[in-house]
Design a protein around this nucleic acid. Structure first.
Lengths: 241, 241
DNA sequence: GAGTTTTGATGTCTGCACACATCGGTGTCA
DNA sequence: TGACACCGATGTGTGCAGACATCAAAACTC
């Protein structure tokens, strides 16, 4: 039921708020939204409740439904991320995700070396080797698939559910990078070897080596991508409570 | 309006699902919930919609409202985190947050050294010095307050809204650590100095030094806290989609 | 066993009563 | 006359009740 009225209402409003079409402070009335989206009150009310829980709007009696500023949005919500990726802030969102990834993956590698279940370690080694093979062959689609699987296994193997939850976002950034032609047909040999190093370090429980090799991958990835988001404005969220 | 029926319904169901009282696969009917919580259908429906967006339940026609397994929950949602902190999984949640912090803060320090606005850098130095003073005086409440402010400024100064969003959770863990008597009256001198080092490195734009000093803080914090969550079971989220 | 019908739950719509923040008018006092 | 406190009118979200639509699971038919 991905196309219920409720879902479409959320999609419509979420997209428009995050795109900036409905700016912070803008006030809507439930009644107007009913007319505009041609749906009933219950649909609008349920949609607004969801947007409220995402920090996109707040409701006040006698005033209406007020759009909240970006600093109030929940930047970790998958829907919010998706909407931002579809907006002008796509570059900034990709940068945020990449920065988060480079922070998290080395830590995940370290944890995976300490905690991952044995079968997962073996699979990680297999995938790393298969990555190297498909990289040498120049099989880009297969490489992408394995790349996603490798990093998913890594995050999953950390045993930290927050890290594991980033799998979806990572897949998104890797796919985006490939689709936008930012990946060469033949990945750098060193990067391929680093993936193998990470997997083998995890397999033998060497946390330090796993982190270090993962860190190399992420630093290379960041330096590769940083060109693409040159001069995306940074937003500094005020610290005050 | 934090005590609306809608809000209370969410709180009731969210707490019971995350505590495990309503296990994964458990099926509820909207009608039964109306009776049980003594509220109307619209309140139940709006609450269920929000829980659905958090990944706690799914609705199926002809079946009802099904509770989803923890692997489907959004582990970054502030409400989910709060509910987990109030459940038996409190230890596991604190560990997850601590692991996330240790991954993110050194990266945030590095970014802050490159991007933070000048006034924030100055404030960071002031706060670090004030921390050292209150630490020497043994003024625990004041130290906690400054500690929270320091780490909030650091995350905010990174200019990454995802990092900045972790401020609230960090405050929670720091407060929890103090409340539970895990903090000595006089923090270790080295840790105090590391905070000053982070601040001064950021102030002069030395990203490497900022990361390194922050990493020292986080490694010490982790080794301090790891005792408290001895043998919390780890959950490995399956990688397959 | 495959195809069809029935059933029962959510999805959607509507009208109504209520709570309550805001605004503007009224009255009081200096 | 002007400033200020009070108070009621107004408008909007919140909550309720009941109806019909929809659609997928389950039961049934062949």
């Amino acid at each position: 039921m991905t196309s219920s009225l409720h879902h479409r209402a959320i999609e419509n409003l979420g997209t428009r708020i995050i795109s900036g079409e409905l700016p912070a402070g803008h006030i809507m009335l439930a009644e107007n939204l009913e007319d505009e989206l041609k749906v009933s009150r219950s649909v609008i009310r349920e949609a607004v409740r969801v947007l409220q829980s995402l920090g996109l709007v707040e409701t006040t009696k006698r005033v209406g439904i007020r759009v909240l500023p970006p600093s109030r949005w929940n930047p970790f919500d998958p829907q919010v991320i998706r909407w931002r990726l579809a907006s002008k802030a796509r570059g900034a969102q990709l940068r945020s995700l990449a920065e988060l990834r480079s922070a998290v993956e080395p830590a995940a590698a370290e944890l995976a070396a300490q905690n991952a279940p044995a079968p997962l370690r073996l699979e990680l080694v297999d995938v790393a080797h298969a990555m190297r093979d498909s990289g040498h062959r120049g099989d880009v689609p297969r490489f992408l698939e394995l790349d996603i699987q490798f990093h998913s296994l890594l995050l999953s193997g950390s045993g930290n559910e927050m890290f594991a939850n980033l799998m979806g976002q990572v897949a998104e950034t890797l796919t985006g990078r490939t689709v936008h032609g930012l990946m060469p047909d033949h990945p750098h040999e060193a990067a391929l070897q680093w993936h193998v190093d990470v997997a083998e370090a995890i397999a033998r429980g060497d946390a330090g080596a796993a982190r270090e090799a993962s860190d190399k991958i992420m630093r290379r990835t960041m330096s590769q991508m940083s060109d693409t988001w040159t001069e995306q404005p940074r937003v500094f969220i005020p610290v005050h409570r």
